[in-house]
Structures are given as structure tokens and as C-alpha cells.
């Protein structure tokens, strides 16, 4: 009967090791969440810019903070045994989505275009594809983009309040393009699909802001494309 006992001892060891690893991951992701909150706080200023706030500077400050994110992802990647990414990925899925959202916001504010997976990967020092090492899962990249559109529709409203009438036009065009992009995907009935269902309200909100500006002659009707 000794062999039966051995099996259970082995199993106990397996459970212990798993437990310890999860604890270590938790420590890193807690720091990541902290960092995300800090970057977010920096970027919140865009909604209520003080006189003389420079958007470019804000973006620079926020982008620099990704340096610490890189270090944290390095620590995290080190801990994950090769090919066990999906065993533990639920633990960093949410925070990765927020990093994508922030990166996407910075790139749009600075360059007026969609961030690429390559740029996000570079900012966080991870691989683009699963095959090449620790990466940001495609689902999480997409979810991050959807979180960004929600923030942008809010920005469209607040930009008007601050007297900036060009930003909403730019945002509206961008969000429409993103919407067209997502429509190409065959999403399953999962979290991503559910979140995508909300995108149409962001599109609508942005269109409404542009409409408000247009009927008042605050932007030209035809400078949209």
C-alpha cells in the first residue's frame, strides 16, 4: 500500500508548488495594478485640462511610466514555466487589458491613430506572438481597445466643454473606424462580444457631439474626411 501513499505525497507537493507560484504572481500583479492606477491618474487630466496643459507633455509623462511596467512584465514572465501561460493567465488578464487601454490612449492622443500590437509589446517588453515568449493575448489586446473607446467618447464630450472643437471630430472618425474593424470579427458569445455590444453607444455618443458642433457651425460639415 506504500505506493498509493507515495502518489498522494507527490500530489501534495504539486499543490504546494502551485500555491506558492500563484502567491508570487499575485505580488507582481498587485504592483502592476498600482502602476496602472498611477498612469491613469496622470491621464485623467485630459478631461479637465488646466490653462496651458500640454497634451504632448502629458503623454510623455505617461509613456515614461511604462518603463516600470516593462520591469514588472520581465519579472512576471520569468516566473511562468514555459508553455503554462494559459494555466495562470487569468491572474494578469485584467491588468494587461488596462495597460493596452492606456497605451492605446497615449498613441491616439499623440499621433491620432490606432496603437499596434507591436507597439504595445515594445512598451511592455513582451513578445507579440505566443510562439516567441510571454505575450499579451489577442483577446486582452482587443478588450483593452474597447475600454479605450469608452474613455474617448467621454473625452469628446469634455473637449467641447474645454473649448476644443477639433478633438471630437477626430475621435468620432477614429471610433467609427474601430467599430468597422470589430465588425469584421466573428466573436463568440463571450465577454469580448458583450463588451463590443457596448461600443455602438460610444460611436453614437461621438456622432452626437459632432452633430451638435456641426449644426452650430462650430466645425465645418465637410472637414470630416
Amino acid at each position: 500500500m506504500a505506493s498509493t501513499q507515495d502518489i498522494f505525497t507527490d500530489f501534495q507537493e504539486y499543490l504546494n508548488a502551485d500555491h506558492e507560484l500563484r502567491e508570487e504572481i499575485r505580488v507582481v500583479t498587485r504592483d502592476m495594478n498600482q502602476l496602472v492606477r498611477e498612469i491613469q491618474t496622470v491621464l485623467q487630466v485630459i478631461h479637465q485640462p488646466a490653462q496651458g496643459t500640454s497634451m504632448a507633455e502629458l503623454c510623455k509623462t505617461a509613456e515614461d511610466m511604462f518603463g516600470k511596467g516593462k520591469e514588472l512584465y520581465r519579472q512576471l514572465a520569468e516566473k511562468i514555466p514555459e508553455n503554462q501561460y494559459y494555466r495562470y493567465s487569468d491572474m494578469w488578464r485584467f491588468v494587461s487589458q488596462r495597460f493596452v487601454y492606456l497605451a492605446g490612449l497615449i498613441v491616439f492622443l499623440r499621433d491620432g491613430r490606432l496603437v499596434t500590437r507591436e507597439e504595445v509589446a515594445a512598451l511592455l517588453g513582451v513578445a507579440v506572438q505566443r510562439e516567441d515568449g510571454f505575450h499579451i493575448d489577442l483577446d486582452d489586446f482587443l478588450m483593452g481597445l474597447l475600454n479605450m473607446t469608452n474613455e474617448l467618447s467621454r473625452l469628446a464630450v469634455n473637449a467641447v466643454t474645454s473649448g476644443d472643437y477639433e478633438r471630437p471630430v477626430q475621435i468620432s472618425r477614429f471610433v467609427s473606424q474601430l467599430d468597422a474593424g470589430f465588425r469584421v470579427l466573428n466573436l463568440k458569445n463571450d465577454a469580448l462580444r458583450k463588451r463590443f455590444d457596448g461600443l455602438k453607444y460610444d460611436v453614437k455618443k461621438c456622432e452626437e457631439v459632432v452633430y451638435d458642433l456641426t449644426i452650430r457651425g462650430l466645425v465645418g460639415a465637410h472637414n470630416k474626411d
Binding site: 502518489i7 507527490d10 500530489f11 507537493e13 504539486y14 504546494n16 508548488a17 502551485d18 506558492e20 507560484l21 514555466p81 514555459e82 508553455n83 503554462q84 494555466r87
Partner: peptide, 18 residues
């Protein structure tokens, strides 16, 4: 051995997938 019942995270082999 019984490497696959050994704790995977610390094991030198990676039986998951590869």
C-alpha cells in the same frame, strides 16, 4: 521517474504542450 507528478512550476521539464 515520476517527473510528471512532481511540481511542474519548478520542474526542469515542461510536460504541458511541448
Amino acid at each position: 521517474g515520476n517527473s510528471s507528478t512532481k511540481p511542474e512550476p519548478t520542474g526542469s521539464v515542461s510536460p504541458a504542450g511541448a
